[in-house]
Structure formats: C-alpha cells, structure tokens
C-alpha cells in the first residue's frame, strides 16, 4: 500500500459519499444518470466476489463492503425512493453498446479463463466506460449541478491516482497488471475533457454549462 493507492481509494470513497449525500440531502437525483449508477454497482458486485474466496486485509474487505453497499444504496435511491425526481428522459445512453462489447472482450482478453477471473476482467473493462451515460446526460442537458461536478472530479481523480500507484508498484514491487493499467488509462482519459471544464469553470465559482 502506497500513498497514491490510499489517496485513490479515499478519493473514490469521497466521490461515492458525495453522490449519496447529495441525493439524500436534496431528496432528488436530478441530473444523475441512473444507468451509470447501475453500471458502477455491477462493477463492484462482479469484482468483489473474491470477498468470499480470499482474505487480503481488514482494510480491503471493509472497503469492498462499503463500496458495494453504497453503490447499491445509490441505485435504490435513484430508481425507487426518489424515482419521481429521476431525469430518465435525458438518461438515454444505450447501455448495451457498452455491456456487450465489454462482455465479449473480457472473454477474449483476460489473465485466466476462469469464471471469477472473467468476471473480474469484465468489471475492470466496464468500470473504464461506466461513466459514459453520465457524461452523455450532461452533454445532452448542457449543464451539471456543481455538487455533481465535485462527484465526477473525485471519481476521475481516483483512477488517475491509481495510475501513479501502478508506476510506483512497477518500480518498487515489480507489480504489473496490463489489463488494469490499459483500462485505467482509458478510464482516466475519458475524464480529461471534464477535468478541463472543472478547473476552468467550477473552481472559479461558475456553474458547469456547455455552449449550446
């Protein structure tokens, strides 16, 4: 465990909590893509099946349980508790265009052709693109609430910090997981355009709105 990995995990947790609190406090999930949230919940469920097979550390297991519970709670809030506020008309990204290719790819390119490993690979690939419905929704409505942009910032920062963690681990531990690295790079790149808007607009106190 190095500082970048820890900061990445914390940043990921902050993102998840920000979103949960935003929905809970405002009693509304307006502007949030339920589809992205379903994808993230699927990512956690398929990746953390190893909770039942191996024990790495108390930290590892507790974080996995927190991520899974929070992501499922978020999906519940969007589709059940605050369904009336869910902006489904703007959440029109075709998720099958992500899930089908990602599913196929995880069968073709993986570390080991076993059910657990294929599901892990699926979760890694799916996570890299799971934010697309949310970004698509923002591009459709042309704006995002400031709190939603903070959520996206921490979510993007998390994978960026993991990239630094992987460079660190390569040099100091000889650790190298090509699947995670390539997917993590794709994931981080998808946030770049958003990062630019976040720094140039949101951090200067302006609302994130896109030119028509």
């Amino acid at each position: 465990m190095n500082i970048f990995r820890l900061a990445g995990d914390v940043s990921h947790l902050v993102a998840i909590i920000i979103l949960l609190l935003k929905i809970w406090k405002t009693r509304s999930c307006a502007g949030i893509s339920g589809k992205s949230q379903i994808l993230f919940a699927s990512v956690f469920v398929t990746r953390y099946l190893d909770l039942f097979t191996i024990f790495i550390s108390l930290y590892n297991s507790s974080m996995k349980i927190i991520y899974i519970s929070c992501s499922i709670a978020t999906v519940y809030l969007v589709y059940f508790k605050f369904k009336a506020t869910y902006d489904g008309n703007h959440d029109t990204f075709r998720v099958e265009f992500l899930v089908v290719p990602v599913g196929g790819l995880s069968f073709l390119v993986n570390h080991d052709f076993s059910p657990m490993e294929i599901l892990w690979t699926f979760s890694i690939y799916l996570e890299s693109v799971a934010i697309l419905p949310q970004l698509f929704m923002i591009s459709k409505t042309g704006e995002a609430e400031t709190i939603t942009t903070h959520y996206l910032f921490f979510l993007g920062l998390y994978r960026g910090l993991y990239l630094i963690n992987w460079i660190w681990r390569y040099y100091f531990e000889g650790f190298f997981d090509l699947i995670a690295i390539v997917a993590g790079l794709v994931q981080t790149v998808l946030y770049c355009d958003f990062f630019y808007l976040y720094v140039t607009k949101v951090l200067k106190g302006k609302k994130l709105s896109l030119p028509a």
Binding site: R5, D9, H12, R47, D50, I54, I56, N60, M63, K64, Y67, H111, D112, W120, Y162, N165, F176, D177, L178, A180
Partner: peptide, 10 residues
C-alpha cells in the same frame, strides 16, 4: 502475459 494470483487492489 502476467498472471496475478489474486487481485489486491480495489
């Protein structure tokens, strides 16, 4: 092709 026995990251 590096094979990791288990995944220790989140």
């Amino acid at each position: 092709w590096p094979f990791t026995q288990y995944h220790d990251e989140l």
